[in-house]
Every structure is written in C-alpha cells, then in structure tokens.
Computed example of a mutant assay.
Amino acid sequence: MTSADLIHSSGHPATARQNAVLIADAEVGTASPLVESLIGKGLHVCLADTADAARRHLRERTISFAIVELVFDDGDGIGLVEAIAARYPRCRTLVHSRFCNLSNAVKAIKSGGSDVLPKPTDVDFLIGVLLNKDLRQPTFRSSFPAPGNVRQEHIRDVYRSCGANVARAARQLSMHRRTLQRLLKRTPLL
C-alpha cells in the first residue's frame, strides 16, 4: 500500500464523509504535522502523491476541502484544480506550492482554486485559510511573513540557484546588476 492509497480518519464516520480533505502533494506524508492537525480537527484526510492518485480519490470519495501542489511527476496541479472544481464546485481548494508566482496564482484561481499560498507556510495559518477562519486574530497575523522578508528570501533563492553569479541572478530577477549588488552589500546573509 503506497502513501497515495492511505486514508486517515478521526474515527467519526458521519463527520468524515462530510468533511473530507484531499491533500495532493508528494511532500506530505502520514506523519506530517498538517495531517495530524487536520485529523485532530475531526477531518477525514486522503493523501495522494501523484496527480493520478488524486484523480482516483476524486472518483471514489466526496471531498469538501483540497490542498494541491502545482507540480507532479505525472501531471500538473492546475489540471487537478480544474478537475476538483468540475466535480465538486463547492469544494474549497487551496493551492500550496513552492512554484507560486503571479502567473501560476492567477491560473490556479481562474481554474477554481480558492486561495494560493507559497511553501513553506505555518500549519495553523494554512488550516485557517483552508477552513476559512477569521485570520485577523493576532496568532494568525504573526505567523505570516513580512513582505520584505519574503522578497529577501526570494532574492536569496534566485541568487543561490544562479551559483552566486550576480549578473545572471540580476537578469532572472529583472533587476539591474548594480541594484542587486547594493542589496547584497546591505544584507550580506543573502
């Protein structure tokens, strides 16, 4: 039995049928804090590590919530979001991916996604967005990173992926090379 076939439940059969969550993400396993938190909230959790396994869950079960990664070895998450929206139009679908950028976020929302969050995201915040909780509470506000920190992290990731080549990183970031050099000088931990 693979992780794509495992189904976890809180033990409440009536509640589980009404509040099933499909997690279509190869990085999320049975011991994940996300899975444990969802089960602790009384939700039924279906795991899929491939797009094909996620489609199989969609055919076999009724789901109320979904958390979808954008990239799979056997397909893309946008197609999966479309399939969820077509089969369960009232399903709240959250795209949670390392491949979040503006164009992917727009595609995901147009395809039927409810929200888009980049990885990594705090588990409590992620569940709050998924379940449409009031996020104005102080505990949720402190868990979302400041925009400046997100920008610095993105610049650092691109700089590292370019092998610490300033000119190449500046082209990837659509930024002047000297501007990137100044940023790197100000925050040497990049």
Rank of each mutant, 00 (worst) to 15 (best):
residue 107 K to Q: 13
residue 52 D to N: 09
residue 138 P to I: 03
residue 78 I to L: 10
residue 74 D to S: 05
residue 164 A to G: 10
residue 55 R to N: 12
residue 171 R to Y: 13
residue 115 D to C: 12
residue 84 I to V: 14
residue 103 S to G: 01
residue 169 A to F: 04
residue 55 R to L: 11
residue 145 P to Y: 05
residue 129 V to W: 13
residue 79 G to T: 06
residue 123 V to H: 04
residue 131 L to C: 01
residue 158 V to Q: 08
residue 144 F to T: 01
residue 139 T to M: 08
residue 79 G to W: 08
residue 168 R to S: 14
residue 115 D to P: 07
residue 99 F to I: 04
residue 69 E to K: 01
residue 119 K to A: 09
residue 172 Q to D: 10
residue 101 N to F: 03
residue 84 I to L: 10
residue 137 Q to P: 01
residue 160 R to T: 10
residue 95 V to N: 06
residue 107 K to T: 09
residue 162 C to E: 15
residue 62 T to A: 08
residue 131 L to Q: 11
residue 106 V to S: 02
residue 113 G to P: 00
residue 53 A to L: 03
residue 63 I to L: 06
residue 65 F to Q: 06
residue 100 C to T: 14
residue 81 V to E: 08
residue 126 L to Y: 01
residue 130 L to S: 05
residue 155 I to N: 06
residue 55 R to F: 05
residue 113 G to C: 06
residue 63 I to S: 01
residue 111 S to Q: 02
residue 75 G to T: 02
residue 71 V to K: 13
residue 117 L to Q: 08
residue 130 L to I: 07
residue 124 D to G: 07
residue 77 G to D: 03
residue 58 L to S: 01
residue 48 A to W: 02
residue 154 H to R: 15
residue 60 E to I: 09
residue 165 N to R: 13
residue 92 R to S: 10
residue 147 P to N: 11
residue 57 H to R: 10
residue 85 A to C: 07
residue 76 D to P: 12
residue 56 R to S: 14
residue 164 A to L: 15
residue 167 A to I: 06
residue 90 R to G: 13
residue 169 A to Q: 10
residue 58 L to V: 11
residue 61 R to D: 04
residue 97 S to I: 01
residue 114 S to E: 07
residue 97 S to A: 13
residue 51 A to Q: 09
residue 127 I to K: 01
residue 156 R to I: 00
residue 177 R to E: 06
residue 163 G to D: 11
residue 90 R to W: 09
residue 159 Y to M: 09
residue 109 I to Q: 02
residue 100 C to K: 07
residue 70 L to E: 03
residue 120 P to D: 04
residue 114 S to T: 12
residue 145 P to T: 14
residue 147 P to A: 15
residue 138 P to G: 12
residue 144 F to H: 08
residue 169 A to S: 10
residue 132 N to H: 13
residue 47 L to Y: 05
residue 174 S to N: 15
residue 178 R to Y: 00
residue 85 A to M: 07
residue 84 I to G: 02
residue 68 V to Q: 01
residue 157 D to K: 02
residue 149 N to A: 14
residue 69 E to P: 01
residue 77 G to R: 04
